[in-house]
Design a protein around this nucleic acid. Structure first.
Length: 894
RNA sequence: GGGCGAUUAGCUCAGUUGGUUAGAGCGCUUGCUUGACAUGCAAGAGGUCACAGAUUCGAGUUCUGUAUCGCCCACCA
């Protein structure tokens, strides 16, 4: 017999204790050599700069539920943790630190700066992993990876070189999204569009041939400052309004530079004035038009979006100051026709939120179409499934319209592009290499330099599912654990990450990286806003762990998040999980108090011949709960899983069976006592295992506390409960009809309690209830005394009295088992009783009429499923019976 | 401009292939210092399922349209 459980559950010490032990025992460690069936998840690596937020907590709890269950089911289960080097984000952090010292990264120099970032990582980069440990996630920390690890860097280089040699990576000068604060190119996905209130400025461009400058072509623009880089004005060739301007030359206001009028189908005659200023260096469409018409591109801005020399008198002005001045100057010249307000989308840097500047710039790109095709097929033919499946469409649409991926970044923290250039005069060799080359492969020259840019962070992330296993080396791990099984992430990164992993997996491994992608919702605050630092509405998961517990955090999050839906959270909601843990703790305490010696859990198998209906009932409910949990977990319905265990443990096991068990446990029949106790433990042990994936700590603590496993064992490897079907249950003495019997009994007792309440009986008063079966030949007696419900529950079965004749008048209720009579003549208010019965009668009659109408309907009877019609018939009979009884009772009262 | 999601009890949300009487948690009301648990127990009130049509014997559930909110995508200057 172990010691008693503490009166109050102390999650803090328990959680710390178990996590340390699990790690020390290597419980999360998996090895390919052990064989078996693998189950693999790779974590979506959080940014190394990150701190755990509610989104992570939800994301990782879901993965932990999957992983822990699979481990209990005997899979060779591996969950690989790690972090992402998060190029721009991390560089920004270190740059901010430098700024406080009044320095910039340029002051420090590239190598020293990169060293500083590594140093930063060493000091602060472990924050999120420690928080993940507090959350209790069962990942194999011995396999932790970082996207800048040597092995992962090798993978990056390998992939780059292969794609380069396949001509799927190219360098070119195109319009890209430029962040003037981070001073780097961004991919399309890194530019976040947001609606902003802006203006449409209508500017008059004078026609050159008209010496009096009285003829103008008016263009509309949202960005007047870019006119300084205009090299044409375009109109639609079919737009006759501009026929007179064909072939004309215009004088660009403010500079008087000559620009042609060109004709291009791109121009929409219905928008603006039908004439478009063309700025090839600062707009992607204009760039394309410029190419089609052989126009010059004039870049008018510096890296930091300050006007450069090409902007003439505006040089040195920030782009927005330049805008004001350009508008003012145009107005002064009378060339500003009008201004209209306009709401339009403007791209912003996803890291620092600065307005993106479309800018002509030489960058590296990955040609995506050839990679996308197999990735589209993999989802179409079901090799990869998205859950919920509506994301298929989102994915496919993006993939089918995929554009080339700008992968170069003008920052220092990241994987440097493995492209080398020969500096020898006359030799302009350029090549990609896995190792730093010593000499030029063309001319043998040794003056070489490497491309200064680094790769987009996602260029290492997209290799994550196989680079973590040592690719490009053909490791045993890779063979065994790849492809992984499930990927759990947020829909926000379908394009950034999920889609690209699928492409990379198929391209480099020849197989999908995972078989199923579960996309969960976003965690929001009570008002539906995203949790963010600036709004100050975040709830820190670590605070919740401190104030409630990790189990409470995990359970509440999972229980409250419907599949793929966003979840609104406030601090009070975590009471759900806390209260549940407390409830389980107390149930365990009760069982233990009544247990003289620890049961041998392995041998626990209640004797089929000794089961009462109530015993059968709880066993049947247990199996039904297991069955449902399995189904829900298989379908990623994690909230339904959590609620099923909750409902079962709390309302069926505690509220019903434990209450029921109190009588036999304190009774005088040792055999009965033993049976009830063994059933209680049998059920409780399985319920704990069922709950373990979502509440790992309290279940482990109790599994030990109850003596369900040895000191050096763990619930983590206890077998996941198996659901038996009806036939198998019957063989174990659990019969289906016991359930309806107990449900009926439960209801009868509840009605008895209602009657007590209705008639204002104090708990001290004794009342006799008699339950009369429908044929009224016999009555069953249920005695309800001071502890009304307790005593009622004590009845293992009803005692049947023959020939019982109830006294009159008879206040009563109708139960599924018959009529429950209350012999309380002295306490009854006939008027109140009459009203109650009349109400019931009216309700029953209405429903009967409705049911009869349905049954009279030929179509219903012939076309509805047999069991539905049968159900309606039964209901009709039930109602008729009920009405007859109510009428009799009312008669008796009158 | 396209796409997606949501609209069910005071609040937050479930409701799986259409099928008997639409559920839960929280909140609220009433009664309980019940020998595990007041972080608890028992009971109760509260809903014309956003609106309008359509299909059907039958619609919260399917279809069409409308409204409101939210999200994602998008190079109309």
């Amino acid at each position: 017999m172990t010691e008693e459980l503490a009166k109050h559950y102390d999650p803090k010490s328990v959680e710390q204790k178990w996590y340390a032990k699990w790690c020390a025992d290597g419980d999360f460690h998996a090895e390919a050599a052990k064989g078996g069936t693998p189950y693999t998840i790779v974590i979506p690596p959080p940014n190394v700069t990150g701190i755990l937020h509610m989104g992570h907590a939800l994301n990782q709890t879901i993965q932990d539920v999957l992983v822990r269950r699979k481990r209990m089911q005997g899979f060779n289960t591996l969950w690989v943790p790690g972090t992402d080097h998060a190029g721009i984000a991390t560089q920004n952090v270190v740059e901010r630190k430098l700024k406080k010292e009044g320095r910039t990264r340029q002051d420090v120099g590239r190598d020293a700066f990169v060293d500083m970032v590594w140093e930063w990582r060493k000091q602060y980069g472990g924050t999120i992993q420690n928080q993940q440990r507090q959350l209790g996630i069962a990942c194999d920390w011995s396999r932790e990876r970082f996207t800048m690890d040597e092995g992962l860097s090798d993978a990056v280089k390998e992939v780059f070189v292969r794609l380069y040699e396949k001509n799927l990576i190219y360098r070119g000068e195109y319009i890209i999204n430029w962040c003037p604060r981070c001073c780097t190119a961004l991919s399309d996905e890194e530019s976040e569009h947001e609606d902003e209130d802006g203006h449409l400025w209508f500017i008059r461009y004078p026609v050159k041939s008209d010496e009096r400058k009285k003829t103008y072509l008016t263009v509309a623009t949202t960005r007047p400052e870019t006119m300084l880089g205009d090299t044409a004005v375009a109109v639609n060739p079919r737009d006759e309004r501009f026929a007179a301007f064909r072939g004309k030359t215009l004088l660009l206001p403010l500079t008087d530079r000559e620009i042609p009028v060109i004709e291009d189908d791109y121009v929409d005659p219905k928008y603006g004035t039908g004439a478009v200023k063309v700025t090839p260096a600062h707009d992607p469409n204009d760039f394309e038009m410029g190419r089609r018409h052989g126009l010059e591109s004039i870049n008018i801005m510096t890296d930091t979006a300050v006007m450069n020399g090409a902007a003439g008198p505006y040089a040195g002005l920030d782009r927005f100051e330049a805008r004001k001045k350009v508008v003012a100057d145009l107005e002064a010249l009378g060339l500003l026709e009008k201004i209209e307000p306009l709401r339009h989308a403007v791209g912003h840097c996803y890291r620092c939120h600065t307005a993106v500047e479309p800018r002509l710039s030489p960058q590296w790109f990955v040609k995506m179409k050839p990679l996308a095709e197999p990735a589209i097929a993999a989802v179409k033919d079901g090799r990869i499934r998205f859950v919920p499946d509506r994301w298929n469409k989102v994915y496919l649409e993006w993939m089918e319209n995929i554009r080339d991926w700008c992968i170069s970044r003008q920052i220092w923290w990241g994987h440097r592009i493995p492209v080398y250039y020969c500096d020898a005069p006359g030799c302009r060799a350029e090549w990609a290499a896995r190792e730093t080359p010593a000499a030029c492969p063309h001319c043998g020259g040794t003056h070489l330099h490497q491309d200064p840019d680094v790769l987009d962070t996602w260029f290492s992330s997209w290799l994550w599912p196989f680079s973590v296993f040592g690719w490009p080396k053909e490791t045993e791990d890779l063979k065994f654990f790849y492809p992984t099984d499930d990927l759990v992430t947020a829909p926000e990164i379908i394009f950034f990450w999920v889609a690209r992993m699928i492409m990379a997996g198929l391209e480099f491994m020849g197989d999908v990286p995972f078989r199923r992608v579960y996309l969960h919702g976003t965690v929001r605050d009570n008002q539906g806003r995203k949790m963010s630092k600036s709004l100050g509405n975040s709830i820190d998961p670590i605070d919740i762990i401190r104030d409630f517990s990790a189990d409470a955090l995990r359970f509440s999050l999972v229980a409250l998040t419907a599949t793929g839906q966003d979840v609104y959270i406030s601090k009070e909601k975590f009471e759900l999980g806390r209260n549940f843990a407390t409830k389980i703790w107390n149930a365990a305490r009760f069982l233990l108090m009544n247990t003289k010696e620890l049961p041998d859990i392995a041998a626990l198998s209640p004797d089929p011949n000794l089961l009462t209906a109530d015993d059968q009932y709880i066993l049947s409910r247990l199996h039904s709960a297991i069955r449902q949990c399995d189904e829900f977990l298989d379908r990623c319905r994690f909230n339904d899983y959590a609620k099923t265990v909750y409902e079962f443990l709390w309302h069926e096991f505690c509220d019903w069976y434990v209450e029921y068990a109190k009588a036999p446990l304190s009774g005088s029949d040792p055999a009965r006592r033993a049976t009830v106790l063994s059933i209680a433990h049998f059920v409780f042990a399985r319920a704990l295992r069922l709950l373990h994936p979502v509440m790992p700590f309290v279940t482990e603590e109790l599994y030990h506390g109850m003596g369900y496993c040895g000191e050096n064992e763990t619930i983590q490897f206890a077998a996941w409960p198996t659901a038996l079907d009806e036939e198998e249950l019957a063989a174990k003495g659990v019969h289906a009809d016991a359930v309806s019997y107990v449900e009926a009994k439960h209801e009868a007792i509840a009605r008895g309690r209602n009657l007590r309440a209705d008639y204002g009986l104090s708990p001290a008063q004794t009342a006799d209830f008699v339950l009369r079966p429908a044929d009224e030949a016999t009555g069953e007696k249920v005695r309800i005394d001071r502890a009304a419900y307790l005593t009622a529950l004590k009845a293992d079965r009803f005692e049947v009295e023959s020939g019982y004749t109830p006294p009159k008048p008879q206040p009563s209720v109708i139960t599924p088992l018959g009529t429950l009579f209350l012999s309380l003549a002295g306490h009854v208010d006939p008027e109140a009783e009459k009203k109650r019965l009349t109400d019931q009668l009216a309700k029953a009659r209405a429903e009967l009429a409705n049911t009869e109408k349905r049954l009279a309907n030929e179509s219903f009877v012939s076309r509805a499923p047999a069991e539905v019609v049968e159900g309606a018939r039964n209901r009709k009979n039930e109602l008729a019976e009920k009405i007859a009884k109510l009428e009799t009772l009312l008669g008796a009262l009158a």
